[in-house]
Design a protein around this nucleic acid. Sequence first.
DNA 1: CCACTGACGAGTG
DNA 2: GCACTCGCCAGTG
Length: 106
Amino acid sequence: MTTVSYQEIYSVVSCIPRGRVATYGQIARLAGIPGHARQVGYALSNLGDQVPIPWHRVVNARGMISSRADGCSMAVVQRLLLEDEGVTFDEHGRIPLSRFQWLPES
DNA sequence: CCACTGACGAGTG
DNA sequence: GCACTCGCCAGTG
């Protein structure tokens, strides 16, 4: 893989601790490709559900769950998974990143 | 090789 | 806080 393949993205995502969430841009940055947040989302979408990757801990910069082609079907699952890990949602259905965003060095 | 698409981000008004 | 625009790149037909 000459370029930063999905492997790096998967590695970073799988490193997200339980009860914490990370944004696409942050993952891209940790993967060594700042600004390529789109590629992160694309990589995860390509994963589907066949890989043991905590994709549910990945949200956009707004702290919301990005809808997939299925609509919001998986969004509900993602929310349940996060709540099960101790992550809470506000009235807007968003996660207070100020409190739950994963800090890779803390 | 060209065009379109897609889990996004940051900047501006 | 919200709406709009531009940028970035890989995969697919």
